[in-house]
Simulated assay, not measured.
Amino acid sequence: MEIADRPQPPTGAARLLFRAPVHLYRWGLGPLLGGRFLLLNHVGRTSGRRRRTVLEVVDRTPGGAYVVCSGFGPRADWYRNVLAHPRVLVQVGARRFAAEAEPPAADEGAGFFVGYARRHPRAAVRLARMMGFVLDGSEEDFRAAGRELPFVRLHPRA
């Protein structure tokens, strides 16, 4: 595995394109995205304002938690926000629930990325490239990249 160049979060027109799925949820069309994406409602770490981000679901754990990843690294606003304020609201399709955000250990994140690559091999290669990783497609390369990525587990709260 080689880290070529870690991308910056999108700005301008690219940011508008990345934000488009948020509008689907606002218009009540979130179920069209199925269970592969979720809407994360979180609080800004400095502003205290409500924020919304649509993220791809990397994995589901037996306890009903969803695992997501910050493709733009640990400097992504949503990631820093949930570390500062881990109580969040999640919507997957039409289902909404309160959750607690928790970053897993790096080795656990490696396992999540390997599992994602097994389920979605072409998407995993494209995402890795977009995130600045040059991978040979081997499980060990996906595991190494997964150790570098910031994952978050979203546990449902009672």
Rank of each mutant, 00 (worst) to 15 (best):
M1Q: 13
M1E: 14
E2F: 00
A4Q: 11
R6V: 08
P7V: 06
P7T: 08
Q8R: 15
Q8E: 15
P10N: 01
P10R: 05
P10H: 02
P10W: 01
T11V: 11
T11D: 05
G12H: 02
G12T: 10
R15T: 00
L16V: 13
F18R: 01
F18M: 06
P21A: 00
V22G: 03
V22A: 00
H23P: 01
W27D: 03
W27H: 07
G28F: 03
L29I: 04
P31S: 04
L32W: 11
L32E: 07
G34W: 00
G34P: 04
G35I: 00
R36L: 01
F37K: 03
F37N: 03
L39G: 03
L39D: 04
L40E: 08
H42N: 02
H42I: 02
V43L: 12
V43N: 04
R45Y: 11
R45Q: 14
S47W: 09
R49G: 03
R51V: 06
T53M: 05
V54I: 10
V57A: 05
V57Q: 10
V58M: 13
R60E: 15
P62W: 02
P62Y: 00
G63T: 14
G63I: 03
G64Y: 02
A65D: 13
A65L: 02
V67L: 01
V67W: 04
S70C: 01
G71S: 09
G73N: 03
G73V: 06
P74H: 07
P74L: 01
A76G: 12
D77W: 02
W78L: 06
Y79S: 00
R80L: 14
V82D: 02
V82P: 04
L83F: 06
A84I: 04
P86H: 07
P86C: 08
V88S: 04
L89E: 15
L89K: 08
Q91H: 02
R95H: 12
R96F: 08
R96P: 08
R96V: 15
F97S: 02
A98S: 11
E100G: 00
A101C: 09
A101T: 11
P104G: 03
A106Y: 09
E108C: 07
G111K: 04
G111I: 11
G115N: 07
R118F: 04
R118G: 08
R119H: 14
R122T: 15
A123V: 14
A123H: 12
V125N: 00
R126M: 03
R126N: 06
M130W: 05
G132S: 12
V134T: 14
L135P: 07
L135H: 05
E139F: 13
F142G: 07
F142V: 13
R143I: 13
R143L: 11
E148T: 12
E148Q: 13
L149G: 07
L149K: 11
R153A: 13
L154W: 09
L154C: 10
H155R: 15
A158C: 07
A158W: 10
A158M: 05
